[in-house]
Design a protein around this nucleic acid. Structure first.
Lengths: 115, 115
DNA sequence: TCTACATTTGAGCAATTGTGCAAATGTATT
DNA sequence: AATACATTTGCACAATTGCTCAAATGTAGA
């Protein structure tokens, strides 16, 4: 990144203003991780399936038509990013949405697509 | 995907219920594309920079510290997915958020991280 | 302890992504 | 037409991703 264009001086105010209001790098990375987790068809299916009720790994495999292993890999990502939570019950592990924000965002996105 | 676990029969009701409520494959792919576009630090910086005001490619390069080329590549993705819109003015191209939903979702995400 | 089943994990691989570079394309001014 | 500047585009390449397969781990019951 070496280039700087000549409008720099002219737009200086807007640039400084926008720069000042930009969230911190760390926050940007966190939010980016969050959206990145939602930006995959398999993970989205998992999340939409969990909107109503908790489900186990195997249920999610049945619902999505993907291998148990594939689901488990994706669940780990969602778990690491605190998007889903889980509880163990015997041989099963039941997953659920971890946060109301997630439900809210999924709904806004669905609305966004339908309009 | 060959395995089917034995809880299938037992959980059948929940599975069918969840499957029925899952959005269509095409909708899932659209929403996934949408979140995928937000799930990248550079593109997020662009979007947060555009929350208040329109900016040109070069401004966005200055604000983010990335090359004009890198910004332009990312803007194309955001443009293709109808997340930003643009207007041309002489040699400059000014970009802006294309949709209130995007602003709304960015705000919910920011809140999500801060809590 | 042995067996069965649910889940997780690690390796490996094809496919996709994000960036810089260099060249091409717009656009205005002289 | 020639020049200058803003932007876009195609190529290349390292890095990352999502899946399968096979093996490992957890858990319950005989």
């Amino acid at each position: 990144m070496t280039e700087v264009c000549k409008v720099y001086e002219e737009h200086l105010d807007k640039i400084l203003e926008a720069q000042k209001k930009l969230p911190e790098e760390e926050t940007i990375l966190e939010i980016s991780d969050f959206f990145d987790a939602l930006g995959n068809p398999t993970r989205l299916k998992i999340l939409f399936a969990l909107i109503e009720d908790e489900l186990c790994t195997c249920d999610l495999s049945n619902i999505t038509g993907l291998s148990v292993s594939a689901i488990s890999h994706q669940l780990r990502i969602l778990k690491d990013r605190k998007i889903v939570a889980y509880r163990k019950d015997g041989k099963n592990v039941f997953y659920r949405l971890d946060d109301e924000h997630v439900r809210e965002i999924l709904k806004v996105a669905l609305r966004h697509m339908e309009e």
